[in-house]
Amino acid sequence: MIIQAFSAFFATFFFSIIFNISKKELIYCGLGGAIGWSIYLYVLHKTQSPVMASFCGAFIVGIFSRIMSKIRKVPVTIFLVSGIIPLVPGAGMYRTMFAIVDNDLSKAATHGILTLQIAGVIAMAMVMVSSFPHHSHSNVNK
């Protein structure tokens, strides 16, 4: 699990370079990805539910991004976009597609619905975090 969290840090870190995020924020972006993925693994271990785990991971990434954007005074998108990347159901997408190629439609439906569920709860987590009231109007964009 430590190796996985560690890898998530570096994966997010290099991803942030792909997104052209400035050098000063790269470490924090990596940190966001590692925190999100650790929470995901922990909840997955406790509940055996990838949907629940994705929700918790995305929720924590959202809160982390809000806090970091206040501290570092840059738009919240920078941390949100990079932190959410490990949680995006790329694996689910691939397995759905693979099952379709394999003509195994019941498997395709299982993976497809799971992927949609995960994408949905990540969206819901972001909605909930973004809907917290802002402290003052001048802070809306920070």
């Binding site: 994966a11 991803f15 792909i18 997104f19 998108t77 949100l80 976009v81 990079s82 959410i84 990347i85 995006v88 790329g90 997408m93 691939y94 994408a119 972001m126």
Partner: peptide, 11 residues
């Protein structure tokens, strides 16, 4: 395939 995933577009 992860580096190809449209992260910014989704977010």
């Amino acid at each position: 395939i992860m580096p190809l995933v449209p992260g910014v577009a989704i977010t």
